[in-house]
Simulated assay, not measured.
Amino acid sequence: MKTNKISIIGAGNVGAATAFALMMNKVASDIVMYDIDHKKAEGEALDIFQGTSLVAPVDVVAGSIEDTKDSDIVVITAGAAQKPGETRLDLVNKNIAIYQKLIPEIVKYNPHTILLVVSNPVDILTYVTWKISGFPSERVIGSGTVLDTSRFKSAIGRAFDIDARNVHGYIIGEHGDSEIAVYSKTTIGVITFDEYFKSQKIKEKGFKTRIAAEVKNAAYEIIQRKGYTNYAVAVAVARICTAILRDERSILTTSSYLTGEYHVDDVYISTPTVIGRSGVAKILEFDLDADEQIAFEESANIIKGILKASTLEK
């Protein structure tokens, strides 16, 4: 019987929530959790496993890197967290050192898998993973702005008091401070954002700016209150995994490798991407307005600048 196996590297807050989301959404039949702290992985896996009789059949275990062998997808949530006083570059270099040891071990047991990077800074670490793994770029994907796009739709849905699933729009660029809300292509049903906004007779000035800032600062607001984010990103990861395993060819704003699209190349950055069983099936390219195009290129340059200064390029 064909099984769908997903391994999660890292059993911290995000890794554990991801395993739970995969179970609840019936995405995989086998879930393996690996963490350098094996007892932590065992505890999380056991806690999740004990609810499996109430959902679709799924086996959830804690294991070694060897136990991840022949996974359809390997989700990477492991990595160092940024400490007070550390720069973004410090964090990147620390994670590069971790990935230089970790990725070859994953690839050794999973030469045909799809690598899905979730750890931050996700665009940079996805590029690092691609370089170290030697995989074709189609099989190395970052979770990118799938979560940011969900936040964007949810914020607009709440503001307009409509079902967020009927908001169609994207956050593109870096998963971070330079991300871009693409209002020029956002629609409510089939109505353009600007048309719908006008029909609502909302008098708030700077509505677009406020929503975009709310999305960009969402993680900071949550971290300030509870110390970390984990639930919504886990749902986003489960959504990507579903699109892969079911060969949905869904359009998701994953962090994907660009080779000239939008006048940007040699960088992993988020843009609408067709995701299917082979990973990235196609990167969608569409016309941005002038300000959005400039912002997207600037966002790509920020990512490239950090990579250039990192130990990966040394």
Rank of each mutant, 00 (worst) to 15 (best):
G227I: 07
D194G: 14
A219T: 13
G189P: 06
E195H: 07
I191Q: 11
I222W: 04
E179T: 04
G169H: 01
N166C: 01
D177P: 00
D177M: 06
N230T: 12
G176K: 02
E174D: 10
R246P: 02
Y183H: 06
I223C: 12
F193K: 04
G169A: 04
S178L: 04
F197Y: 14
A219S: 13
T229D: 10
Y183K: 01
D247T: 07
I171D: 14
G173C: 02
T242M: 09
T186N: 05
C241E: 05
T242L: 11
G176P: 02
Q200H: 11
N217A: 07
A181K: 00
R246W: 10
K201H: 14
E174N: 06
Y220L: 13
T187Y: 12
E204C: 09
E204R: 12
A181S: 06
F207T: 12
G176H: 04
D194P: 09
E174R: 05
V190I: 05
A234M: 10
I244A: 03
Y220H: 14
I211F: 15
R225K: 14
G176D: 02
I202V: 12
E174K: 04
I180V: 09
K226Q: 14
Q200K: 15
G189M: 08
Y220V: 15
A212N: 02
K198C: 13
V235Q: 02
Y228R: 11
I188A: 11
V233G: 03
T186A: 08
F207C: 08
E221M: 07
H168P: 00
F197N: 03
N230D: 08
G189D: 10
N230S: 13
D177C: 03
T209W: 04
E221N: 06
I211N: 10
A232N: 08
D194A: 14
T209C: 02
K216S: 09
V182P: 03
V233Q: 03
K205C: 04
Y231G: 12
E221K: 06
A219E: 08
I172P: 00
A212Y: 03
A238E: 05
E179V: 00
Y170M: 02
E214I: 00
I211K: 12
A213E: 15
A219I: 13
H175S: 13
D247N: 15
I240N: 04
G169D: 04
D194L: 11
A243V: 13
F193S: 09
I223N: 09
S178W: 03
I222Q: 13
A243G: 14
I211H: 13
A218R: 03
E214G: 04
K201V: 07
I211W: 14
E195K: 06
A218E: 03
G173L: 00
A212W: 02
R246L: 13
A238R: 00
A219C: 06
R210F: 15
Q224A: 15
L245T: 14
T187W: 07
S178D: 10
A234I: 01
A212H: 03
G176W: 02
I222T: 14
E204K: 13
G189H: 09
I223D: 11
G189N: 08
I191V: 11
I172L: 01
I202Y: 12
A218H: 07
Y183G: 03
V235T: 02
R239S: 06
A243C: 14
Y196W: 11
R239F: 00
N217G: 05
Q224G: 12
